[in-house]
Structure formats: structure tokens, C-alpha cells
């Protein structure tokens, strides 16, 4: 009798430990799986696969969007996330990662990069350059153009004259 009661209580207690719903037998995003050599559950599409979004992606690569304030602001945000760690907030090539020993990238304010076409910056983001890795997987084409627009704004900011900002004189000490 005593044993039966204990067994009943144990069964009740164990019923609360059923985790079959909590951890379902499925492969989760970023999950691992031992059936593939690389240990990841996710599979890469075969080489040459064209994704449904690829034509739009290609189009965005080729055609720069119209430069608007919104685009430059988007570029500012993306620049601060992905570029500023090395290139610095103002584009002088003195970001925090550089201050910690990464080779210093050229300043955007050099004569060479001020004369460089927009396509050059876009291509460097896409393919990388020197020790800079490609950012193609992190920055989609439209954001790359936005960053290029913001780099232009940074370049202008470092070579502006007082005449470019009529209201600035009153604010200067």
C-alpha cells in the first residue's frame, strides 16, 4: 500500500518533468546537427542557386537610390554601426579598433578618396579592400549606397567654409 502511494506520487512528480513540448525533436535556427560534416543544422543552397530576392538585390547594386535626407540619416546610422569602429566617427581612420592595434585605414578626407567616385566606396564595402573584410553579408546594397552618401557628407563637413553655412557665424564664440 505504502509503495503504491509512493509510486503514484513519483509518477505525478515526474509528469511535471515532461519536456517533449519544451524541446521538440526538430532542428532550430542556428541549431546543430551531427548528420552533416560542418555540424550545423542549416544547409547552404547549392552553388549557383538564384534566390527569389536576387534580381531585386542585383538591381539595388546597380542603381544608386536618390540622395535624400532620409537616405543620409540611414547612412549615418549604418556608418556608426559598421564603419565607425575602424574608420572613426568623422572618417579620419582613427576608430576604437584602430586605437587597439588594427592597421589604420586611409582617411576619407585625403585628396585621393575625395576624388574617388561613389562606386569605389560601394565596391570596397561589397568586396573588402586590403585588410578590410567584405561587408556584403552585413550591409545590403541600399544601405551601402546610404553609407556612401554619408561618407560624402563627412567629406563635405571637413572641407566646408564658413560661407557654406550662413547661420554658423552667429553661433561661433
Amino acid at each position: 500500500m505504502k509503495a503504491a502511494v509512493l509510486a503514484g506520487l513519483a509518477a505525478l512528480a515526474l509528469a511535471g518533468c515532461d519536456v517533449s513540448m519544451t524541446d521538440q525533436p526538430r532542428l532550430d535556427t542556428y541549431g546543430s546537427s551531427d548528420i552533416w560534416p560542418d555540424g550545423a543544422a542549416a544547409r547552404r543552397p547549392p552553388a549557383g542557386t538564384v534566390s527569389q530576392s536576387d534580381p531585386a538585390w542585383e538591381k539595388a547594386m546597380k542603381r544608386p537610390p536618390a540622395v535624400t535626407t532620409a537616405l543620409i540619416e540611414r547612412g549615418h546610422e549604418r556608418y556608426d554601426i559598421y564603419c565607425a569602429p575602424c574608420h572613426g566617427a568623422s572618417g579620419h581612420g582613427d576608430g576604437m579598433v584602430v586605437r587597439r592595434g588594427f592597421p589604420s585605414p586611409p582617411s576619407y578626407h585625403s585628396a585621393r578618396l575625395r576624388a574617388a567616385p561613389a562606386q569605389h566606396f560601394f565596391d570596397v564595402i561589397t568586396n573588402g579592400y586590403g585588410v578590410m573584410y567584405s561587408y556584403a553579408s552585413r550591409v545590403p546594397p541600399r544601405d551601402r549606397w546610404a553609407i556612401v552618401a554619408y561618407i560624402r557628407a563627412l567629406q563635405l563637413s571637413q572641407h566646408a567654409s564658413l560661407a557654406d553655412v550662413p547661420d554658423a557665424r552667429e553661433q561661433l564664440p
Partner: peptide, 14 residues
């Protein structure tokens, strides 16, 4: 081979 990080925040599958 991807690095096998261990989950810190693991919600139930449902």
C-alpha cells in the same frame, strides 16, 4: 565549421 556556442536564452519550443 561554425563555432558551437551554447545558448544563454533558450525559450521553450512552443
Amino acid at each position: 565549421k561554425p563555432i558551437r556556442w551554447n545558448r544563454v536564452h533558450d525559450l521553450p519550443d512552443y
